[in-house]
């Protein structure tokens, strides 16, 4: 069995990628930088959506910079938030 973490998308990014969540193998993706590269390869026709400013959350906390990812994590990518 392959170890994975859960990747979720929200709002415009979810619409543009056409999916709400994916399972990502930790063997291929070990941190948030590698995740961006992996996504660009997986969605080559959606580069523009992935190049826009995006926020990253790991296990429900926003993270900045390169963050290590491990099996069982819940990772989310989304556009800057617009509540209130």
């Amino acid at each position: 069995m392959t170890d994975t973490f859960k990747l979720k998308f929200f709002a415009r990014l979810k619409d543009e990628l056409g999916t709400a969540e994916l399972d990502v193998p930790t063997q291929q993706v070990t941190d948030t930088d590698a995740l961006k590269t992996w996504l660009c390869e997986r969605f080559p026709e959606r580069q523009a959506a992935l190049q826009r400013p995006l926020l990253t959350a790991v296990n429900h906390d926003m993270v900045n910079g390169t963050t290590r990812l491990k099996a069982g994590d819940e990772v989310a990518l989304f556009p800057p938030v617009t509540g209130g």
Binding site: A11, P80, V81, T82
Partner: peptide
Amino acid sequence: MDYLKTQAPFWKKERSDQGERWLDAR
């Protein structure tokens, strides 16, 4: 209120006569 607007994961989508659009952060 100020922190909620930049830290809490909410997103607004607006519908008008021009169609639907996700609002950009200000």
